[in-house]
């Protein structure tokens, strides 16, 4: 009996002690988009090593992230799809972009290597609508006269799970084709009209389906296309140039966008002007409450984000994310100073 009592006592003491220990170091909880998760977790790990501050980021999806920050169960939320200004105001949230990524169409046609096949936005929309059923269709051939396109059925591979990637991609198709906009629309998941289509779970699911099905076309985040050595397509951008997806072409789209005129940073980087801009580019966002209850914690969070902007760029590029240009960071930090408050005082700088 005595031993049991001792054990219970020891357990309670341990819990109490860890509670005290946790109270002393600052810790931040965040949840949301899965797209930036590899980067956020690396940043958090490095930052923990430097400052001792703990940042837990749960990759539960943008929808979950938005719900959690609204319910105040986390300190910051993350979303791939920007919230509209009305929604932000209603929930008392501030949103700002953290990193940028690009979505890339990938194909699996034997004999066609990365960067060889060309698409315009409209042609891509027609393919994804199922209106072009074979790879040797004249519309595809005319744009790609040098390629040996086979008499092969086109299989559409899309994301099965709701995803910011799908949102960005369908947004681009909607911009390029009024018919897509009207018949399919834009969303994190949509009703895919092509009869010959399959859905993969996550980027890795789409990547593996495309690699396994002859004549497949899908869309994945740039990092997955690079890491899986997939045959990505070249797209015609707003300036009329055919551009290859790369960190540089995403950066061009980011830099050429007019962030100043986008309230709440509601800005989709699709079809931005600029000779080198990749047309399917998007930022991933952090959401945080305007009114912070704990000034020290809020300050800690802003310091972490500041560190990410200023010292996290190299890590971001290593993982194929695009860091924000310095002038956008300046804008974001001006917003922090203006909008994020604790006890009526700005927490930044």
């Amino acid at each position: 009996m005595n031993r049991v009592k001792w054990l219970i006592f020891a357990a309670v003491a341990c819990i109490a002690l860890t509670g005290v220990a946790q109270g002393q170091t600052l810790s931040l909880n965040g949840a949301g988009a899965s797209f930036p998760y590899p980067l956020y977790s690396q940043w958090a790990h490095k930052y923990h090593g430097l400052t001792g501050m703990k940042i837990n980021y749960q990759s539960i999806g943008s929808g979950g992230g938005i719900a959690q920050i609204k319910a105040k169960t986390v300190d910051f939320g993350a979303s791939d799809e920007p919230l509209k200004t009305e929604d932000l105001d209603q929930a008392g949230l501030v949103q700002f972009p953290m990193v940028v990524g690009g979505v890339v169409p990938v194909v699996n046609i034997s004999g066609i290597a990365a960067g060889q096949i060309k698409f315009t936005g409209d042609l891509l929309a027609q393919v994804f609508m199922g209106k072009i059923a074979k790879w040797n269709d004249p519309a595809v051939k005319n744009l790609n006269p040098g390629l040996n396109l086979p008499d092969l059925n086109i299989t559409i591979v899309h994301r099965a799970d709701g995803s910011g990637t799908t949102w960005l991609f369908t947004h681009y198709l909607g911009l390029s084709s009024p018919e897509w906009q009207e018949k399919v629309g834009v969303g994190k998941s949509v009703k895919w009209p092509a009869p010959n289509s399959a859905g993969g779970k996550g980027n890795e699911g789409v990547a593996s389906y495309v690699k396994k099905v002859d004549g497949a076309i899908g869309y994945v985040e740039y990092a997955y296309a690079v890491q899986n050595q997939m045959s990505f397509a070249v797209l015609k951008n707003r300036a009329g140039n055919f551009v290859t997806p790369s960190i540089e072409s995403f950066q061009a789209a980011t830099a050429n966008a007019d962030w100043q005129k986008a309230p709440g940073y509601y800005l989709v980087l699709n079809n931005q002007p600029g000779d080198q801009s990749w047309p399917i580019t998007g930022a991933t966002y952090i959401l945080i409450h305007k009114q912070q209850a704990d000034a020290a914690k809020a300050k800690g969070a802003m310091k972490f984000f500041d560190w990410c902007y200023k010292h996290g760029a190299e890590m971001a590029q290593k993982l194929d994310y695009v860091p924000l240009p310095a002038k956008v960071v300046e804008l974001v930090q001006a917003t922090w100073a203006k909008e994020i408050k604790a006890d009526g005082k700005s927490v930044w700088p």
């Binding site: 999806g61 929808g63 979950g64 099965a160 799970d161 998941s189 009869p195 289509s197 859905g199 779970k201």
Partner: peptide, 25 residues
């Protein structure tokens, strides 16, 4: 894929797979 097809080769979905895929977002 949310589609009813007579072919067994075609992609389809089940209740459980739809839930697993789409609930999070």
């Amino acid at each position: 894929s949310h589609r009813i097809s007579a072919s067994l080769f075609a992609a389809g979905n089940s209740i459980a797979s739809t839930l697993a895929n789409e609930f999070a977002e």
